[in-house]
């Protein structure tokens, strides 16, 4: 994490679905600023920053990552 409170996270496409990243970013729009920095065939890199006071920071980021993981697994394994 940088001094500005912005965290860069690389999400490999073996596990994380690029579309799931965008869906999760929209879902957390009120709590987190999410910017896609780079998207290649094998990974998506995002910058995430907290947008307002809310739950403890580490948990919020972890909740966000869990949500992306859940959505990605749903899509990849066809659990819907």
């Amino acid at each position: 994490m940088s001094d500005s409170g912005c965290e860069r996270i690389a999400l490999c496409h073996d596990v994380y679905d690029p579309a799931a990243v965008l869906v999760a970013a929209r879902a957390y729009g009120a709590l987190l600023y999410v910017k896609v920095l780079e998207s290649s065939s094998d990974k998506t890199e995002v910058a995430v920053r907290r947008s307002q006071d809310g739950p403890e920071r580490a948990d919020l980021m972890d909740e966000f990552l869990n949500h992306i993981l859940d959505l990605s697994i749903h899509r990849k394994l066809g659990l819907d």
């Binding site: 690389a10 490999c12 596990v15 948990d59 909740e63 990552l65 869990n66 993981l69 859940d70 697994i73």
Partner: peptide
Amino acid sequence: SREALLRTCYWFTDRCYLFVSRASSGVF
């Protein structure tokens, strides 16, 4: 397998926080 890992992660996202990445080729 990757599928076994993903299914296991799916079971656990309600119990803990998970982040999965590639450590190296063939290793998550």
